[in-house]
Design a binder for these strands. Sequence first.
DNA 1: TGCTGTGAAACCGTTCACAGCT
DNA 2: AGCTGTGAACGGTTTCACAGCA
Lengths: 217, 217
Amino acid sequence: MAEKSWDRPAGVAEPTSERLSLVLRALRTLEGQGVHTVSSYQLAERFGMNPAQIRKDLAQFGEFGVRGVGYHVADLKLKLKQLMGLERTRVVVIAGAGNLGQALADSRNFNVEGFKVGALFDVDGRKVGGRSRTGVPILELSTLAQNVATLKAEIGVIAVPAEAALAVARLLAGAGVPAILNFAPASVPPLEGTFVRNVDLTFFLENLSFQLAVRKR
Amino acid sequence: MAEKSWDRPAGVAEPTSERLSLVLRALRTLEGQGVHTVSSYQLAERFGMNPAQIRKDLAQFGEFGVRGVGYHVADLKLKLKQLMGLERTRVVVIAGAGNLGQALADSRNFNVEGFKVGALFDVDGRKVGGRSRTGVPILELSTLAQNVATLKAEIGVIAVPAEAALAVARLLAGAGVPAILNFAPASVPPLEGTFVRNVDLTFFLENLSFQLAVRKR
DNA sequence: TGCTGTGAAACCGTTCACAGCT
DNA sequence: AGCTGTGAACGGTTTCACAGCA
């Protein structure tokens, strides 16, 4: 998994947020298939989860279902999108235009309903002024604060080497970016007024190795 | 967090594995600084965690500490590496030589003690035969099984589009790869004899959006 | 009847507190 | 005295089981 941030800010429980993302994705598929109604049992089966869990997750935020029937797909989808703040598009900026930064900027994972990658930032003069393959502009890191303001960026992604991660995180926080996704193998603590999520790729590999090692006894 | 696999195979608790990775990383630093001994209190402080938690994590696997003293750095580091299966190098293969696949292959996150990226696989004839920037060969996807065998690959990474993810996972499982890390935005269930870990990048963005939306009320 | 919403029970991971070793 | 290892308490999440509504 991903590494939790040091001091979990109160809000939505992580597992809940994870499941609701999954549910939303399923609802999009179902809507595309012309399905109008779905039960917690059907959703749960899809993910190998418990139906009650899905109902509890949803019930925290209101009564979205109809007893005896289930959930109305279009209705629930809309409610979930509002709930998760996906009813409008948030601008993402990526610090670090190396392989990973550019791959993320161009990735279908990041160019998805609700998000738009506004810019990449780097200190390398040879990259600055250029664009990623899909056309995201690469700007000078020192102009981050002003560009965050003009782009109204709300999410900052850190894709720089570990040594630079903390400084870049401070830069993002200072620029007023409220949410940070850190891919550098260095734990970034939650800075003043920010929600930080550390995603350590090395950790995933180590975890797999651990599972292999432990399962082998 | 990262998405859990559907049916969590018994083994090590996720949070434990996460913390032990962190501890191992700290031990490497400490050893480099010539520190010989460290207590659970010192480790815990470093990560903002509870000392008892670290002791419990370690105690599950043996008695590694010395009462009244703490843990011997070099000793614990060695034990942890053995425990986590990092005492030898595991070969990683990456399916999908797109931006993300190549970025991962060349990333410092993936070229770390205990792991070696053996090959990338793709169906695109223009890529096959080439190499990534750091020299990882790009091979034809149809030759995956034989190459997994010759490379003795133990970890498979999926970096292909969502539609192809499940088929590629089956290919990896069929080739005898026991651990799979899936970066495609599609949940891959644990196939026969494999441990699957889904890491959904879209989910991280949605989670951040969710946190922003919920915190705003 | 069928499925939601929810109190109660079970479960699991975390934290506390202390006995025991050095 | 200092710190580990661990039983017991705690807290939060998951699962169960059922009342209530369509």
